[in-house]
Write a protein that binds this DNA or RNA. Structure first.
Lengths: 358, 358
DNA sequence: ATGAAAGCGCTAACAA
DNA sequence: TTGTTAGCGCTTTCAT
């Protein structure tokens, strides 16, 4: 292989251990350990020999052995529905970045929305000794949800780990979990207000998901804005098609087949807005001349939609960073606290005044 | 707390150990271990008692201790530049899915394109005992690259782990690494041919990155297509602005300020296409009437661009799945092998014949 | 069928 | 300053 310098290299198979390093350096394993970890008084000469040996052997410590004796290692876990969702990806990136900044390892798990996979993953993280697990994304808050999250929280807490809920509710203020989320209601109210200010009165909310806390809050904000502007409650129309581009496309298509009793649509998030935009174009209508559309989240490509999408900016990466920052700061005080992150509207080109003929 | 059923629960702090489970079940730790792992002959009655105790105590095994004695655990690691890139996210999702299907844990790391962070992460994975590490994404293939990848490969191989290179070259056919990638040259040739067939002759390639193996291959495919259609080599024009939406936007903007000597552009990937599309619109030009644009990768939102983007579909999730499948299959044969995945064009609305006046 | 004991690789007392 | 020893939680011989 062209490398004969190391005559007696690492053992045939399996990793090099600290023992081999110690032997090569002519010291005991204890001394080798001290030299390697660096935080113990070791004479420079000895240390140099040990370091040299380690380098020659390409030694890396066994994290398992180290964690076993050292009482776990710095590891955080993020759990999302899927990594390919731009919003979740950004949250995960924020967690990853903040964790990396502190020298923590970050594991990300995807559940595909299946509670069973979520439970399996959390269990796995407990086995692995994660000290921080972050569950991301809205959910339908039923009894099953409450009981499993309560279980996570208690189990994690019992072993000194923390649980943070991002964009999902705590089953009870007393469970040892902390929640960090955006103010969905405020965001939806603001963007709906934007439409109202442009003159729209018949606005549909596309993408409700009854029971899902995040969507319910957005629907509430939408209704609140309507009420504030004196639109009769009967004027509110929410279609519960759920999230995702495909749902937005289908639901919007169906809506367009009926008599069109609306001039604007508030989408549950940017992906359903993407679907809606396409459905509207397919129906031969123009945005924003014929109908205005707004989204939610301001995913990275929202400005490349046709037309560029006016939407609510939720700083997703910051959400991820905040989750770890808050969880790691002030250990005792953190549990049970609730943090709300602000959002704001970004105006692009998918909103105009309603058509005259209306 | 409303739960007094467990009078003597887990120890105040720290995790429940198998020892506590054994005590509660009235057996030795050895028996408890056998009952829990399941693959040893244990009488049903005893097993039931142990399982019961474990459940009552909410016991989960310590993965570190288990890995220490069992010789590592099933863990794969994917390393990408950033998780928020749609393409990388899809590859990561593929790896995650395939790993999960086999009961493996999957860790994803982001480097931000920094070789140092890549090295740190690989080292960390060695410490953690990952049995499979997958490096994703094109790189500039310089000496530094070759030497560090050679090191990864040898170190991983020495401890029985595998290295797979996705979309990046192996430093040498002999290093114990396997490569899985798309046929970049064929893809670029096909999409350029598509433009040529529509009548374009003056086509620019936007997003070169000299030294980057993936982009160089695409440029080569672009040139090959030009040659095949009898376009003089002087007619080729590649602007080396690198990847990313911002670069595409800037470079296209500058290009448009000069005399416009092109009727079509082949973007290095969909993100630079997004930037180019925006720059073209900002210049008051229409796509595809005034200039045609094609992308590369077919990211999930490419069909929502304005206009919907004609691009090369690279099945990114399949790339991720293939990486783990191939690496785990046929252990000995895999090393050193090279796998090429096919791509195909997806036609949407960003290509038309060149304008008449040209 | 079950328990006692050894040992995985490492760090942290405790001695010398 | 360094080596010896114990032990982290678990699995696995080896006895019984």
């Amino acid at each position: 292989m062209g490398n004969d310098m190391v005559s007696k290299g690492p053992a045939a198979k399996g990793r090099v251990t600290i023992r081999e390093v110690a032997e090569r350096a002519g010291v005991s394993v204890a001394t080798a350990s001290r030299a390697l970890s660096g935080n113990h008084p070791v004479p420079a000469a000895t240390r140099a020999r040990v370091l040299r040996a380690a380098r020659d052997l390409d030694y890396v410590a066994n994290a398992h052995a180290r964690a076993l004796v050292g009482g776990g290692r710095k590891m955080a876990a993020v759990v999302v529905r899927q990594v390919t969702s731009p919003f979740y990806a950004q949250v995960a990136e924020g967690v990853e970045a903040e964790a990396a900044d502190r020298g923590w390892l970050c594991v990300v798990g995807a559940t595909g929305g299946d509670p069973q996979r979520e439970m399996d993953f959390v269990r796995l993280m407990r086995e692995e000794g994660a000290r921080l697990v972050i569950l991301v994304g809205g959910v339908v808050e039923d009894d099953a949800y409450r009981s499993r999250v309560t279980h996570y929280a208690q189990a994690l807490d019992a072993s000194g780990a923390r649980l943070v809920l991002c964009g999902r509710p705590t089953p009870d203020p007393d469970v040892p979990a902390l929640v960090v989320e955006f103010d969905n209601e405020a965001g939806a109210r603001a963007i709906t207000g934007h439409l109202l200010s442009a003159g729209h009165r018949r606005i549909v909310f596309l993408g409700g998901l009854p029971g899902n806390t995040a969507l319910d809050a957005r629907v509430a904000g939408y209704r609140a804005a309507l009420a504030e502007h004196g639109v009769p409650l009967a004027g509110a129309r929410v279609v519960d098609c759920g999230l995702g581009r495909a749902n937005g496309l289908r639901a919007m298509g169906e809506l367009l087949k009926d008599t069109r009793e609306f001039t604007a649509v508030v989408a549950g998030d940017d992906m359903v807005a993407a679907g809606a935009l396409r459905a509207i174009a397919d129906a031969g209508l123009r945005v924003p001349e014929d109908v205005s559309v707004v989204g939610y989240n301001d995913i990275p490509l929202a400005e490349d939609f046709n037309p560029p999408l006016t939407t609510v900016r939720t700083p997703a990466e910051e959400l991820g960073r905040a989750a770890v920052r808050i969880a790691l700061r002030d250990p005792e005080h953190a549990a049970g606290s609730h943090h709300l992150l602000g959002t704001h509207i970004v105006v692009r080109r998918s909103v105009a005044a309603p058509p005259r003929s209306d």
